[in-house]
Write a protein that binds this DNA or RNA. Structure first.
Length: 374
DNA sequence: CTTCAACCTGTAAG
DNA sequence: ACTTACAGGTTGA
């Protein structure tokens, strides 16, 4: 297995804080070898492949800082994987410079490190389903759900280190193979219905936009719609409210200025920024969705949270979503009370429990319990 | 239009 | 052992 390097500082990217901290849910951490592994689809190649990443934790003096990647796929060249990873990690965005920029505008950033937290550019369909699963849920279980979707409804990709890898299922595969009851038996709870209905609507959207893949549907709406229209469309799926829609916009459709507002963001927005809307401002927000003719948004939106979203985007600028990622991590870390400064919660998946899935619905423990790193 | 209970499940904490 | 609270929300009344 040959590893290739991509130069990037740990200040700009820390795999441990990006790959398993609530943004992506299908990276597997091999604790023993300190590797991160997943299956990915590179546009232009029809088959999924396996990517392996690693990053040294300690930097020696005057050493270059880099991440390393290896891969397994019939036709990939190292350069196309490198290009893919560069865009997956959005390395064209200078995180250190952005942090400086936020610090200038916002004193709250004064003593904050980036922790190497970046916003990823993920596959939108997978992002949508993952974040539908995220509602009223914890990272450990979301991770488990995403892996189970792949294992039960995706395609077998191949093995690495004795571990079987699967693709993330398309909407078509979900409709073909999964039922609501089966997903419930797999532990999805009330989200089972959301997933089935979303997959069904996605198939309809493919017809409506005259395309044949999930990805093309997202490409279409992202290319032709404004942010408000994109969100309106996303909230047309069952189980998708403003927060999930914004997560898809930010992490799936690279709308970098979008700030998904959840309970943690709401907390620090009020506490640290004193953000509170007046009645007039709330009325104005409602009015804006009326005049733009966005009935679903109007129905699902919470004007108070939408106000917070607007204010934070206004404050932080074009990469506000990235700023949110850093503060969010800090907020969750401190509320969890179990992380040291500079480290986010880390979770692992053990190697031996993943394999060996038979056709019967058994699932449950494919992921080990969350582990907090000291 | 706002408010609020209900919703599945796994796990840590009482 | 047994109970309760909570987790990056959304829905429907």
């Amino acid at each position: 297995m040959k590893f290739h390097r991509i130069l990037v500082s740990r200040e700009a990217l820390k795999l441990e804080n990006v790959l398993q901290a609530g943004q992506a849910f299908r990276w597997i951490w091999d604790e023993k070898n300190d590797l991160y592994m997943t299956s990915i689809l590179i546009p232009g190649h029809d088959k999924y492949g396996i990517v392996i990443l690693r990053q040294k934790r300690i930097k020696k003096e005057q050493d270059d800082e880099y991440i390393e990647f290896a891969f397994k796929h019939p036709t990939w060249e190292y350069s196309c994987v490198e290009n893919y990873l560069k865009q997956y990690f959005r390395l064209e965005v200078d995180l250190v410079a952005q942090l400086e920029n936020w610090t200038l505008k916002d004193p709250n950033f004064l003593n904050i490190s980036s922790q190497g937290i970046r916003i990823l550019s993920q596959e939108p369909w997978e992002t949508l389903i993952s974040f539908i699963c995220s509602s009223n849920n914890n990272i450990s279980r979301i991770t488990k759900m995403c892996h189970n979707l792949s294992t039960y409804y995706g395609n077998k990709i191949g093995k690495f280190n004795d571990m079987e890898f699967y693709s993330f299922p398309t909407s078509e595969q979900l409709i073909e193979k999964a039922t609501e009851q089966e997903l419930r038996d797999l532990g999805f709870g009330y989200r089972a219905k959301y997933i089935i209905e979303t997959a069904r609507k996605m198939i309809q959207d493919q017809k409506r936009f005259n395309v044949s893949t999930d990805q093309e549907v997202f490409f279409h709406i992202s290319k032709n719609f404004s942010y408000e229209k994109i969100r309106e469309h996303l909230m047309g799926y069952t189980g998708v409210g403003p927060k999930v829609a914004d997560c898809v916009c930010l992490m799936g459709l690279h709308l970098d200025h979008i700030v998904p507002v959840d309970v943690h963001v709401t907390r620090f927005a009020k506490r640290d920024y004193n953000i509170a809307a007046t009645k007039t401002e709330l009325a104005k927000i409602r009015e804006s969705y009326n005049s733009l003719n966005l009935p679903i948004t109007k129905k699902k939106i919470n004007p108070e949270l939408d106000f917070i979203r607007r204010k934070l985007t206004e404050k932080w600028g074009p990469f506000a979503g990235w700023a949110q990622g850093i503060l969010f991590s800090k907020e969750v870390g401190s509320t969890a009370g179990a992380t040291v400064a500079g480290n986010v919660k880390k979770r692992k998946r053990s190697l031996d429990e993943v394999d060996n899935v038979d056709s019967s619905i058994k699932m449950k423990k494919s992921i080990t319990a969350p582990k907090i790193e000291a």
